Amino acid sequence: MRLTGKTAIVTGGASGFGAGIVRKFTAEGARVMIADLNIEGAKDLRAQMGDHAIAQKVDVSDGASVMKMEQAALDAWGHVDILVNNAGVTHLPTPMERVSEEEFDRVVAVNMKSVYLTARTFVPLMKDRKSGVILNIASTAGLSPRPRLNWYNASKGWMITATKTMAVELAPEGIRVNALCPVAGETPLLKSFLGEDTPEMRAKFLSTIPLGRFSTPQDMGNAACFLCSDEASMVTGVAMEVDGGRCI
């Protein structure tokens, strides 16, 4: 019960890695807001979590929607201890010059602008309490980019740098900021990463991972729980690889 008494928001929490983090956090005693554009999925997961969870519809790329999420959290708990910026999108594997401007703008808005918007909204609350933890879900794509996912790779590299600069600025305020860098996993984005989800494409991708499997929501939940718990009180500014050795 490492998170007993803690309150946490997990964006993109209705499915994939986000749902794995929600499940682990509630199992460890936290009260969790499942924040997602897919409100029905968030409500379904909340029903499984019982009284420890609440559901909130949010568009993380929209400032007004993020502010509504903040107000809902304050109404429910009065404060927020942990913020997990998990919501993310990608474009299909495409030569960089053929990615449409609309796709590019969406990647920037959801993967990058959202971190600014949640920081603008929640950092003042954490500063007032002189405590808090922010966890950004980046990717091995930001450390070891793969061809044809150029602008997604770049957005995750940006997130890693944002994590480090947030960490060094907010450390005197008692706020820790870290990132997780998973390899691809069994999430709604897997097909987008592979281009086509076939046994052959999966085998080709898995051959690049020394441990021979994808990241799972459970892997992410376990790593997130550690970084957001008091056990990691001396850890800030790291981009932890949860990738089975892919980046070695």
Rank of each mutant, 00 (worst) to 15 (best):
residue 125 L to D: 07
residue 168 V to F: 04
residue 62 D to M: 06
residue 134 I to L: 14
residue 178 N to T: 06
residue 213 R to P: 10
residue 58 V to M: 09
residue 28 E to W: 06
residue 121 T to A: 14
residue 22 V to Y: 03
residue 7 T to F: 05
residue 154 A to K: 01
residue 159 M to Y: 00
residue 53 A to M: 06
residue 100 S to P: 09
residue 144 S to G: 02
residue 30 A to H: 05
residue 57 K to F: 02
residue 109 A to F: 05
residue 117 L to I: 09
residue 175 I to C: 09
residue 92 L to R: 11
residue 36 D to S: 08
residue 158 W to G: 03
residue 192 S to C: 07
residue 89 V to I: 15
residue 161 T to H: 07
residue 225 C to E: 11
residue 149 L to P: 05
residue 75 D to W: 02
residue 214 F to H: 06
residue 39 I to C: 00
residue 21 I to R: 06
residue 208 T to Q: 15
residue 215 S to F: 00
residue 218 Q to I: 10
residue 196 E to Q: 14
residue 208 T to F: 06
residue 194 L to Y: 00
residue 12 G to M: 11
residue 147 P to R: 13
residue 232 A to V: 08
residue 20 G to I: 07
residue 184 A to E: 12
residue 25 F to I: 07
residue 62 D to V: 15
residue 102 E to F: 01
residue 66 V to T: 04
residue 15 S to V: 07
residue 24 K to D: 14
residue 218 Q to Y: 04
residue 54 I to K: 08
residue 233 S to Q: 12
residue 26 T to R: 05
residue 239 A to C: 11
residue 125 L to A: 03
residue 47 A to F: 00
residue 77 W to H: 08
residue 246 R to C: 03
residue 108 V to K: 04
residue 221 G to T: 03
residue 243 D to P: 00
residue 136 N to K: 09
residue 196 E to N: 06
residue 158 W to Y: 13
residue 156 K to A: 05
residue 75 D to Q: 15
residue 25 F to Q: 04
residue 18 G to N: 05
residue 65 S to V: 08
residue 195 G to F: 02
residue 15 S to T: 12
residue 246 R to D: 09
residue 167 A to G: 09
residue 139 S to V: 10
residue 113 K to H: 01
residue 17 F to E: 01
residue 136 N to E: 15
residue 184 A to V: 12
residue 1 M to T: 10
residue 109 A to L: 10
residue 67 M to T: 12
residue 162 A to Y: 02
residue 222 N to F: 00
residue 245 G to K: 11
residue 25 F to D: 11
residue 72 A to P: 09
residue 128 D to Q: 14
residue 164 K to Y: 02
residue 196 E to C: 04
residue 150 N to V: 12
residue 164 K to L: 07
residue 15 S to G: 04
residue 163 T to I: 07
residue 158 W to M: 10
residue 4 T to R: 13
residue 169 E to W: 01
residue 139 S to Q: 07
residue 142 G to W: 06
residue 95 P to M: 08
residue 148 R to C: 08
residue 33 M to L: 12
residue 137 I to E: 03
residue 104 F to W: 10
residue 104 F to E: 01
residue 41 G to S: 04
residue 178 N to P: 13
residue 153 N to D: 08
residue 93 P to T: 14
residue 56 Q to C: 15
residue 152 Y to K: 00
residue 184 A to D: 13
residue 51 D to K: 07
residue 246 R to P: 03
residue 92 L to H: 06
residue 245 G to L: 10
residue 53 A to D: 06
residue 105 D to Y: 01
